[in-house]
Amino acid sequence: MPKGRPNSMNNYGVLLNEIGMDENFITPLREKYLRPITALLYPDLGGACLDSHKAFVVKYALHEDLDLSSHYDNAEVTLNVSLGKDFTEGNLYFGDFRQDPSPVPNYIEVEHVGTRGLFHRGGQIHGALPIASGERWNLIVWMRASAIRNRLCPMCNQKPELVEAEGFGDGFTETAEDDVPETVDLCSLW
């Protein structure tokens, strides 16, 4: 397994592109199965136009990463699947959206059951409570729509200056100004 961190908040896990799983597994999964669902659930986030992703697996275990503090994702839509192992506790919690935080956050807790996945908006503040025992592995897929993020970076709220990058480059693509849509809700279901 590669030694790099899967993201800036987790210390244990792996980026799936590092082990060759992007092209033959995650990309077809996103395009064929996930995008039709996100088109229905998240049309305002370009759900039908999710054209890139960052996929990784994270590990939670005693004496390693036990939990994950409040954050939002670099994604329009996130899929989080509990791959299982035996663990107790470690529920997920969801709160406000980063664009509209309240002075006193109101969180809802969701049990994260092995082999089940959930979708959420990348900009929704969320986290994982500590596991009490065992080990949990999660597949995380940050799905991105270049038509959305080329207009406004979801992390800094600025119009991006695009530069060449390997892979998906955090979901930004180089497009002519005329190709950028006028509205955010731009995609049809098919």
Score class of each variant (00 low, 15 high):
Pro103Phe: 05
Thr115Gly: 09
Val58Pro: 03
Gly127Trp: 12
Gly123Cys: 00
Leu68Asp: 06
Val104Cys: 02
Asn91Ser: 15
Ala61Pro: 03
Asp100Pro: 00
Leu129Gln: 11
Thr88His: 11
Gly90Ser: 12
Val110Arg: 07
Lys32His: 07
Gln124Thr: 05
Lys54Gln: 12
Ala75Lys: 01
Asp96Val: 02
Val81Leu: 15
Gly134Tyr: 01
Thr38Arg: 03
Phe97Ser: 02
Asp44Ser: 09
Asn80Gln: 14
Gly95Arg: 02
Arg116Ile: 04
Leu45Gly: 00
His63Met: 08
His120Glu: 06
Asn80Gly: 10
Gly114Ile: 08
Asp44Gly: 12
Phe119Met: 05
Thr38Gly: 00
Ser70Cys: 08
Gly117Thr: 09
His126Lys: 00
Cys49Asp: 11
Pro130Asp: 13
Glu111Gly: 05
Leu92Met: 15
Pro43Phe: 01
Lys59Gly: 08
Cys49Lys: 07
His71Lys: 11
Tyr107Leu: 09
Pro101Gly: 05
Ile125Gly: 00
Thr38Pro: 02
Val58Ile: 15
Asp73Phe: 09
Leu34Cys: 03
Asp100Leu: 07
Gly117Trp: 13
Phe87Arg: 08
Cys49Asn: 10
Leu45Glu: 01
Gly95Thr: 06
Leu129Gly: 03
Glu109Leu: 09
Pro101Lys: 04
Gly127His: 09
Gly90Val: 13
Glu89Ala: 15
His112Gln: 10
Pro101Asn: 06
Glu89Trp: 05
Ser70Leu: 05
Val110Cys: 01
Tyr42Glu: 01
Gly122Asn: 06
Gly117Lys: 04
Gly84Ile: 04
Pro43Gln: 07
Ile131Ala: 07
Val77Gln: 04
Ser52Ile: 10
Gly114Pro: 09
Leu92Asn: 12
Leu34Asn: 03
Asp51Lys: 03
Gly46Met: 00
Ala39Phe: 07
Gly127Gln: 11
Ile131Pro: 03
Phe97Thr: 06
Ala61His: 12
Ala61Val: 02
Thr38Phe: 03
Val104Asp: 07
His126Cys: 03
Ile131Trp: 05
Gly47Met: 04
Val57Gly: 05
Pro36Ala: 13
Gly123Phe: 00
Ala61Met: 11
Asn74Thr: 14
Asp73Val: 12
Val104Ile: 11
Asp73Trp: 11
Phe94Thr: 01
Arg116Thr: 04
Glu89His: 15
Lys54Asp: 06
Val57Gln: 02
Ala61Ser: 13
Gly46Asn: 03
Phe87Asp: 10
Leu40Met: 07
Gly127Lys: 04
Gly123Glu: 05
Gly47Asn: 08
Asp96Tyr: 03
Thr88Lys: 13
Gly84Glu: 03
Pro43Tyr: 00
Lys59Trp: 01
Thr115Asp: 06
Gly127Arg: 09
Gly122Arg: 05
Asn106Pro: 00
Val81Met: 15
His53Trp: 03
His120Met: 08
Tyr42Trp: 04
Pro36Thr: 11
Asp86Trp: 13
Ser70Phe: 02
Thr38His: 05
Gly90Asp: 14
Arg121Ile: 02
Leu62Trp: 01
Asn80Ser: 15
Gly90Met: 13
Phe94Asn: 00
Gly46Arg: 00
Pro43Thr: 06
Pro103His: 08
Ser69Arg: 14
Leu40Ala: 13
Arg35Ile: 08
Lys59Pro: 00
Thr78Ile: 14
Ala61Lys: 09
Arg121Ser: 13
Lys85Glu: 15
Gly117Tyr: 07
His120Arg: 12
Gly127Leu: 06
Leu45Lys: 00
Pro105Glu: 04
Thr78Lys: 08
Leu129Asn: 10
Ala128Asn: 10
